[in-house]
């Protein structure tokens, strides 16, 4: 059983939903980024998504665009992402998903990426711009030691959801709305309807919902109809607002704790 499966199993038995925290690896720099992940792990984040920065992130809004640019400027690259995973393993056994566009993986070498990610201690990969139609070239050269998380969007028809799920492992990432990351206008009723369609078509894989979830209230609402909630731009917005702060990692940790706290409250009262 993979670490991701185990985590969802454990949370389910406790009646909890997963808080999936996304940050761009290396933002604002390698040292502080590692400290931020440490605080996130301590403060209720159940699963960590590390974004591999890319120069042309076409599925991301301005917040993650800027965070990627800062990370690249600070020298973050795939080799350093692997090193960061290794260091996180020094203090936490949290499941780690590497979240990347395809080109940095292609440039690093697809087989090398798989081998290095497994050795470093990563548990899964999500490649934003690699739909199932194109992903065989990657998964064909991979073993089974990395879960392959796949995206489903509100535009995805049900029969396509089933096809995507049949090639996925770990969990399914449901995009909450038609738009890029960090968009406003989350409509939890509409998202709930798509999530229900997906649950009928996802082979029992956990469903985590992300994009546009920016407050503890949003997280609590969405967690009612998901197995997990992904928060990304909101963490990055916080990091961006505290580029000069010495205690930025603590602030990110506090925010994570508030998100998780609100999600637990919702679960108990709901």
């Amino acid at each position: 059983m993979s670490r991701i499966e185990e985590t969802f199993g454990r949370l389910r038995s406790r009646g909890e939903k997963a808080l999936v925290g996304f940050i761009t690896a290396g933002d604002p720099d390698c040292t502080r980024s590692l400290e931020i992940t440490r605080q996130m792990c301590r403060s209720g984040v159940d699963l960590l998504e590390l974004g591999v920065p890319f120069s042309d992130p076409t599925a991301d809004g301005p917040v993650i665009q800027r965070s990627s640019a800062r990370a690249i400027g600070a020298g973050m690259n795939m080799k350093n992402v692997m090193e960061m995973v290794r260091r996180i393993r020094g203090f936490s056994s949290i499941p780690i998903v590497l979240f990347s566009y395809y080109n940095p993986i292609l440039a690093y070498g697809t087989e090398k990426f798989y081998g290095d990610a497994v050795v470093a201690g990563a548990d899964g990969t999500l490649v934003v711009d690699l739909p199932p139609e194109e992903s065989d070239e990657l998964t064909d050269v991979w073993g089974k030691d990395l879960d392959f998380i796949r995206l489903v969007a509100p535009t995805t028809p049900p029969e396509r959801m089933a096809r995507i799920a049949s090639k996925a492992s770990g969990f399914i990432y449901l995009v909450s709305m038609i738009g890029i990351t960090g968009s406003s206008g989350l409509n939890s009723e509409q998202t709930a309807a798509v999530a229900n369609d997906l649950k009928k078509n996802c082979n029992g894989l956990p469903v985590c919902i992300g994009f546009g979830i920016s407050t503890p209230d949003d997280a609590a609402k969405v967690s009612q109809f998901a197995d997990g909630v992904v928060v990304g731009s909101a963490f990055e917005r916080l990091i961006e607002s505290g580029l000069q702060d010495k205690d930025i990692a603590e602030k990110v940790g506090e925010f994570a704790a508030r998100l998780k706290g609100e999600m637990k409250k919702e679960w108990v009262s709901g």
Partner: peptide
């Protein structure tokens, strides 16, 4: 060639 895009665009 191919189609390397986010899932949101695939159906379109």
């Amino acid at each position: 060639g191919g189609r390397y895009v986010a899932e949101t665009l695939m159906p379109a």
